[in-house]
Amino acid sequence: MIPRIAFTPGEPAGVGPELAVKLACSGRSPDATRAQIIAIADPDLLQQEAARQGRALQLIPFDPEQPSSPTPADSLHILPVALAHEAHPGQLDIANGAYVLETLQRAADGCKARTFDAVVTGPVHKGVINDAGVAFSGHTEFFAEQAGVEKVVMMLAADDLRVALATTHLPLKDVSGAISADSLQQVLTILHRSLQNQFRIEQPRIGVCGLNPHAGEGGHLGREEIEVIEPALDTLRALGMHLIGPLPADTLFTPPQLARCDAVLAMYHDQGLPVLKFKGFGRAINITLGLPFIRTSVDHGTALNIAGTGIADLGSLNAALSQAIELVQLRNL
């Protein structure tokens, strides 16, 4: 079976439209020939971007009643959603905030209906969506709400490094209060099951970062490790999970320690992701764990400063597409 992969290019003023055209016309991964790629976007936006790049792009109307087939070179299947205003590279327009949400809604609906086997997302601009009057904290939270799932986990991956997050888009001052034994157990349970069920790792080994420098230094630099993190890990170890830590992040993110782990759980966004992006920027991807469908994403933002210049790198999108196809295949084994 040829997987059907929905692709949402994201913010129309960012690099998403450029990446969509490049995915079809140049720099194309061999994996693109193994899937039917359906862009959920404004057709005129993509054709304008193709013209800017001097490329001939064929948009094939998506028909879910037809058998899936690989998307030909220089082509994308298209599920059209109209912009409110014409988009210009690098120029945000709050009128198009609803457009971005509609593309995500169509992707979520298609995944829930099993019209799509997975969704790959381009970068969105959270600020412009919020400025448009819609509370929006990110793709991860949006898809969780659409799927009716109480808890999901954000995990980024680059090469052989996987980093999941105990908390996501929070101010640093709020992180400690958001970490509880219950929340850690939920996150680690989802991570453990996803590594088993989605990645086919029979006995996952998960390294867990402490929250404080030196993992609290025995309580002298903070007591979250003693009072919250260690008891949560002990409870899960009693259920058979292989958990390493809590260790200081600057200890855990070293080659000897990472060699012992199939994934790492960081306590907050900027504890784990700088390491991952340093290791694999341009190849790193975002994966949402705990959804009833597969969602992967690029690891970068809208890059408004280079939108329309033709220099956006396709590497992360190709990696996200490859991972989505692999996860579909593993699911179908």
Rank of each mutant, 00 (worst) to 15 (best):
L188W: 05
R28T: 07
H269S: 13
I190E: 08
A319P: 13
G290S: 13
R114I: 01
L327V: 08
A73Y: 03
L243N: 11
H88R: 15
I226P: 00
A108W: 02
D117W: 06
D160K: 02
G207P: 01
F278T: 12
V81N: 10
A98Q: 14
G138V: 14
A249H: 12
H269D: 14
F7P: 00
Y268E: 12
T167N: 01
G207W: 05
G210P: 04
A87V: 05
R200K: 12
V298K: 08
S176V: 04
L289Q: 09
D131K: 15
A107G: 14
G272N: 12
A32Y: 13
E18G: 10
E326C: 08
L57G: 01
H169C: 04
Q271W: 13
A107L: 07
A95T: 07
T140N: 09
P80A: 10
T189K: 06
A20P: 10
D299A: 15
L317Y: 05
A108P: 08
N318L: 05
E145C: 09
A249S: 15
S194R: 01
S180F: 06
P231M: 00
I190R: 04
G14S: 12
A35V: 10
R4T: 15
I287W: 03
I201C: 00
K277N: 10
A164W: 11
G90D: 13
D262C: 02
Q36S: 11
A108T: 01
P43Y: 02
A147W: 06
T235V: 07
S322Y: 03
V187F: 05
Q329G: 11
V134N: 11
S176T: 12
L45F: 10
F142Q: 03
A147F: 05
V128Q: 14
C111A: 15
I40S: 13
A118H: 06
G90K: 12
P274D: 04
G148V: 10
V328Y: 02
N318T: 05
H300T: 10
P3A: 04
T254A: 08
V175P: 05
Q53K: 11
T254Y: 03
A263P: 11
V152D: 13
S297D: 09
L327D: 06
L258W: 06
Q196W: 01
K126D: 08
N197S: 12
V175D: 09
A238L: 08
Q323M: 15
A82E: 14
L211M: 12
F62Y: 15
M241L: 13
I40L: 15
A39M: 09
L46F: 09
Q186Y: 07
G315S: 09
F7D: 02
L221V: 13
E217M: 01
